[in-house]
Simulated scan of single mutants.
Amino acid sequence: MNTSTGSGANPWFSWEYVRRNSADLVAALEQHTTLTAQAVLVALVIALPLAAAAHLRPRLAGPLVGATGVLYTIPSLALFGMLAPYTGIGRTTVLIGLVTYALLVLVRNILVGLQGVDEDVRDAARGLGYGRARMLLTVELPNALPSIVAGVRLATVTTVALVTVGVVVGYGGLGQLMFRGFRSRYHAEIMTATILCLLLALAFDLLLYLVGRALTPWSRTARTT
């Protein structure tokens, strides 16, 4: 891989660098994108039943949120270091760490959304003979969707940034290019990887915003009214 611009200058951005290293950039961006999407999806699959259980059993809410909060406070470098002896160096270690950090945001937002459902809506469902499980699945979760989508958006943007730390175990997506740029003091490599991270975060956020609008058409109607 050739990072030279062909001159003595070391600019913060260089189209020549992008042209010569397009294959590396695409590979790193693909790794970053798939790892982010997979981590958030796995975290959501875990967080949904946990938050639902805490909603149905309020005594679980405090310990559950507290436990995810403690996990979130573990420094990423330390977490990857603790996982590496058991899960090895690479994708699995980074994925477990990212899922761990996303859980706090998702569990809190899902729980807040479920707890914020209008009590009149619950009363109407009870009047129609809805049991607790049916009410959760068909009434409370749909009404909590705006809060859930907001949590997924926040967790996704945060995860895009955290993926770069995976460079310490050899799987950091665009973070690999940033680290290589810092080591060689090549500014264009650092800046290009940083810009791609920002664009990726914006693209994910916009996509999830549109998905949220599609899933909650009633919220748009309510705001208009």
Rank of each mutant, 00 (worst) to 15 (best):
Asn2Trp: 14
Thr5Ile: 07
Ala9Gln: 13
Ala9Gly: 13
Pro11Ser: 05
Trp12Arg: 10
Trp15Gly: 06
Tyr17His: 04
Val18His: 03
Asp24Ala: 13
Val26Arg: 01
Val26Cys: 04
Val26Met: 03
Leu29Tyr: 00
Glu30Leu: 13
Thr33Ile: 06
Ala37Asn: 01
Gln38Arg: 14
Gln38Thr: 11
Ala39Arg: 05
Ala39Asn: 14
Leu41Trp: 02
Val42Asn: 09
Ala43Gln: 00
Ala43Asn: 01
Ala47Trp: 00
Ala51Ile: 03
Ala52Trp: 00
His55Ile: 06
Leu56Thr: 02
Arg57Phe: 03
Arg57Leu: 07
Arg59His: 10
Gly62Met: 14
Gly62Val: 14
Pro63Leu: 06
Pro63Ser: 13
Val65Cys: 09
Val65Pro: 02
Gly66Trp: 10
Val70Gln: 12
Leu71Val: 11
Tyr72Ile: 07
Tyr72Lys: 05
Thr73Gly: 13
Ile74Ser: 03
Leu77Asp: 09
Leu77Gly: 07
Phe80Trp: 07
Phe80Val: 08
Leu83Ser: 10
Leu83Gln: 06
Ala84Ser: 15
Tyr86Met: 11
Thr87Ile: 06
Gly88Lys: 11
Arg91Lys: 12
Thr92Ile: 12
Thr100Ser: 15
Thr100His: 11
Leu103Trp: 00
Val105Ala: 14
Val105Gly: 12
Val107Phe: 06
Val107Tyr: 04
Arg108Thr: 02
Arg108Pro: 00
Asn109Trp: 00
Ile110His: 00
Ile110Leu: 09
Leu111Trp: 02
Leu111Arg: 01
Gly113Tyr: 02
Gly113Thr: 04
Gly116Gln: 11
Val117Asp: 01
Asp118His: 05
Asp123Lys: 13
Arg126Ile: 07
Gly127Thr: 10
Gly129Ala: 15
Tyr130Glu: 15
Tyr130Ala: 15
Gly131Arg: 12
Leu137Phe: 15
Thr138Gly: 13
Glu140Thr: 05
Glu140Leu: 02
Leu141Pro: 11
Leu141Ser: 15
Asn143Phe: 05
Leu145Lys: 03
Leu145His: 04
Leu145Asp: 04
Gly151Asp: 00
Arg153Pro: 02
Leu154Pro: 01
Thr156Arg: 00
Val157Leu: 08
Thr158Arg: 12
Thr159Asp: 10
Thr159Leu: 11
Val160Lys: 00
Ala161Lys: 07
Ala161Trp: 04
Ala161Tyr: 04
Val163Gly: 02
Val165Phe: 03
Gly166Trp: 04
Val168Thr: 14
Gly170Phe: 06
Gly170Asp: 09
Gly170Asn: 06
Gly173Ser: 01
Phe179Arg: 15
Arg180Trp: 09
Arg180Ile: 06
Ser184Phe: 10
Ser184Trp: 05
His187Trp: 08
Ile190Val: 12
Met191Ile: 05
Met191Glu: 11
Ala193Met: 10
Thr194Trp: 05
Leu202Arg: 12
Ala203Glu: 14
Ala203Ile: 08
Asp205Gly: 07
Leu206Asp: 11
Leu208Glu: 03
Tyr209Ser: 15
Tyr209Gly: 14
Leu215Cys: 08
Leu215Ile: 08
Pro217Tyr: 09
Ala222Phe: 09
Arg223Leu: 10
